[in-house]
């Protein structure tokens, strides 16, 4: 859907460049041309020609043209009712992460899996301050406002991973609030949904399990292990493209680093620094988290 806007952009850019060049050239020519005598009558004619032609007609017609193309284009981007209601996913912004809820109870965070080739409705809102949901390559943005739930319609034409980022300034870690949108072809999407629905884990053995349940689990949910609801759901964290809402690529070992240094990597994020937990235990937890994937 972003394609139409791209087209609009190139057309506008071309037209604007022409106008800019034209006006500048005229202006420079007017300054440098040899002065000549003009009668009052001639002056009045020239004056009218410039002001009516350049000042009224040029911008006036451009505006009508723009509105004629722009308003319908905008209309087509709206979430109007379709014959077959599209998949509706709830996305909620938090300082500074994204909560994603599918209709059948699947919850994930900081990543959004969608089917390619058909429209998807995202019902966006916020739990704290105003955020804005935006995946540049898929379409426009929509603000996520506390107390309101607005609907943004997106469509990925081809499978792939698209990066999104919060577009409304939302506080100290506004820079680290990205979301990875993964578009699958239809069978792959259905497979992901099915696998994700079934996902259940048991806690890691020993000290790590105890620490996770007593501390991490208070805020984080891992299906089958903990039910915390204040922080991102970690049930599939091992399979996510990035950690900390785009702060760190989720390569092997990245979770270890994140658990130790997250307040340095993303200062001010909501997770307390856990310096009192031994590094070994943190590493155990991180290694276990890495295995959480559908």
């Amino acid at each position: 859907m972003a394609r139409e806007v791209t087209l609009l952009w190139w057309a506008m850019l071309g037209f604007a460049s022409l106008v800019l060049l034209g006006v500048t050239a005229l202006w420079l020519y007017a300054m440098h041309r040899a002065p000549r005598e003009t009668s009052a009558e001639q002056a009045r004619r020239i004056n009218r020609r410039w002001i009516v032609g350049g000042g009224l007609l040029l911008p006036g017609l451009s505006i009508l043209l723009l509105l004629a193309f722009g308003i319908p284009a905008g209309h087509r981007l709206l979430p109007l009712p379709l014959a077959e209601p599209p998949l509706r996913i709830e996305v909620t912004g938090h300082q500074w992460w994204w909560e994603v809820r599918y209709p059948d109870g699947v919850v994930t965070a900081n990543q959004l899996h969608i089917p390619a080739g058909r429209p998807v409705d995202l019902a966006v809102s916020s739990a704290d301050v105003i955020h804005s949901f935006w995946v540049p390559r898929l379409g426009g943005k929509l603000d996520m406002i506390p107390g309101r739930r607005h609907v943004l319609r997106l469509q990925a034409d081809r499978p792939g991973t698209y990066r999104g980022q919060c577009a409304e300034f939302c506080g100290s870690q506004h820079a680290h609030m990205a979301i990875d949108v993964v578009a699958h072809d239809e069978p792959a999407f259905q497979a992901w949904m099915a696998a994700r629905r079934e996902l259940r884990f048991s806690p890691p053995p020993g000290e790590a399990g105890a620490v996770f349940e007593q501390r991490c689990g208070r805020c984080h949910r891992v299906a089958g292990v903990s039910e915390g609801g204040r922080a991102p759901d970690l049930t599939d964290v091992g399979s996510r493209p990035s950690l900390g809402a785009g702060t760190l690529d989720n390569r092997p070992g990245a979770l270890r680093r994140w658990l130790r240094e997250h307040q340095r990597l993303k200062p001010g994020n909501g997770m307390p620094a856990h310096d009192d937990v031994t590094p070994e235990t943190l590493d155990r937890i991180a290694d276990w988290l890495e295995t959480l994937a559908p």
């Binding site: 972003a2 806007v5 506008m12 604007a16 006006v23 981007l77 540049p136 426009g140 943005k141």
Partner: peptide, 25 residues
């Protein structure tokens, strides 16, 4: 003149709602 006209032209673009949805903020 040069800078302001350029800015004015991008301003007209931004006034177009679907384009604004893309580049706003």
């Amino acid at each position: 003149l040069v800078i302001f006209v350029a800015g004015g032209l991008t301003g007209v673009m931004l006034a177009l709602v679907p384009f604004d949805w893309q580049v706003h903020d």
